[in-house]
Nucleic acid binder design. Sequence first.
DNA 1: CTGAAAGCGCTTACAG
DNA 2: CTGAAAGCGCTTACAG
Lengths: 329, 329
Amino acid sequence: MTTINDIAQMANVSRTTVSRALNNSGYVSEDARKRIMKIVEETGYIPSQSAKSLRTKRSGVIGIILPRLSTETTTRVVNGINESLAKEGFQILLTDTELDKQKEIEYIRLLKSRHVDGIILLATNVNDELLKTIQEVDIPFLSIGQELPGVTSLVYDDYHAAADLTNMLIHKGHEKIAFIGVTNEDPSVGGKREQAFRDIMKENDLPVDENWIGEGDFSIDSGYEQMKKILKNSKDNRPTALFAVTDRMAIGAMEYLKEQGYKIPEDIAVVGIGASMMSKYMTPSLTTVDYFNDEAGRNAASLLLRKLKNEEIEKKFELSYRLILRDSV
Amino acid sequence: MTTINDIAQMANVSRTTVSRALNNSGYVSEDARKRIMKIVEETGYIPSQSAKSLRTKRSGVIGIILPRLSTETTTRVVNGINESLAKEGFQILLTDTELDKQKEIEYIRLLKSRHVDGIILLATNVNDELLKTIQEVDIPFLSIGQELPGVTSLVYDDYHAAADLTNMLIHKGHEKIAFIGVTNEDPSVGGKREQAFRDIMKENDLPVDENWIGEGDFSIDSGYEQMKKILKNSKDNRPTALFAVTDRMAIGAMEYLKEQGYKIPEDIAVVGIGASMMSKYMTPSLTTVDYFNDEAGRNAASLLLRKLKNEEIEKKFELSYRLILRDSV
DNA sequence: CTGAAAGCGCTTACAG
DNA sequence: CTGAAAGCGCTTACAG
């Protein structure tokens, strides 16, 4: 492999000078610079990042830890992150926890060993070991979608998004609203969205029948199963609307409702959250909330880059959202 | 930062011994090993990968170059790759060309500078500069979805998949079939799928009206626009079926057809390729071809890992596919 | 079973 | 404007 020493020798200069020419740091005579560049060109020399980052302690790589690559939300966030990062010459090192909490922690440490300049975590839960590990590794860190105490966090406004959806259903005249959530270990999706739903129902003096509350696991299938369970449990007193905390679960629920011959929205209205592609093209199109994940990703990346430059930034950023009213209500 | 020297000092051994203990290489007395491990544990020591890979020339990172992160096909492939790779302790370094051919080449060189152990390319085109760069960098390389001369390639069976779809439409009685393809610069999606369509039409003595041929750009919108154009061009002699080479373009086309009040499949049957989530949940559900992208990704990764171990492997692998018949035909 | 030494390919004060 | 030298944190023959 060609190294900086080879180039130096061929150009009749020291490797110091080659380094300076390559990095535009310090003085290099026009003459030397030209000779060096010509040889770099000819040989196709590519400097070793390992050597560079061993020396400079910077790698130009940002680590990402995500719960599942295969959901649209995640993809859009990663896409946004990558857009911002690529512009500044950074690359992404990707790790996927497959929803395993322990792996979140492992990967933080692994990313440190790989000398990433910063880490962006798409967290699905908050626990002490996680927080402790983040402190320990002492790397510029950013959490997206979940508020982590002491960590710069970019969060969606889950509470108000869910509150708006609930209010909207109530204003449309619904009083019997079913709900499909996820585990409370996920404070954002599991906690806040359910809390908002319950708060708004209470504010409007509407009862929440626990038989109409389901807990899924983000998957389409679980939406299907929970809808089935809810209808089974409710006998003749059926809900007239369903609030599923993710589009995928809403879609699963709609699948079941259609199979059973229910009309959407006439018999049961359905809403989700996420603004997935599918929500737009299915029939009936799904009412949902757009979290602008791409933009969230872009913001996350540029915030992290600002941290790398030691700029002072706030600890918490709340993102905006937009209700998309469609045919399912 | 704690380094191997700190550990060595604290454990009263040389760093040679620490290295051996950490990597399970060579002899280390039980006593020394225990002392070392205890201190590693206590300090939370994490070895520097940059130093390691500078020394060993291996990084445990595989570079991926993809055309667009935001499509389902790509995501599924990456997901499959990651599954296989993570099991073996490798991580992914991600680069996204945003369909820019020049960036494909830049990223190959960039990944080399980052000392990746191998590269997987999801190519969208084949050109000489690309092939030349691949030769130059001399890194274990694998192409997926596109056959690159001289490069280990994992390809979908585009020709037969497209042929099967066309035959199926013909057997259903369709004689006037419209087609939405993409640029020929993409030999697999643009070239082979169209070639198969034309070959099968010819075999069956069916005319291909050039007014019924559209060229999109993979996007949903372009499917919509091309369908519009095709119908506009065909006046009263309308096609009775549409073959779009991707699900997304098929979905765009269906959008337009629905808007114009055409019934699918009664007025026009529609087929796509890709087996996207959406194809399953939209109404009518879309007939398509499943390329098993996850599995393709898994295969790609394990083939590459075998190459890293210097195993001899063939140059070309053809993947299987499956026709999914749904309500759109 | 253990350690001293060399070296991987860079950058960066320092001196000139 | 240029170069010699030190050093980043590891691994690996080599010698004992």
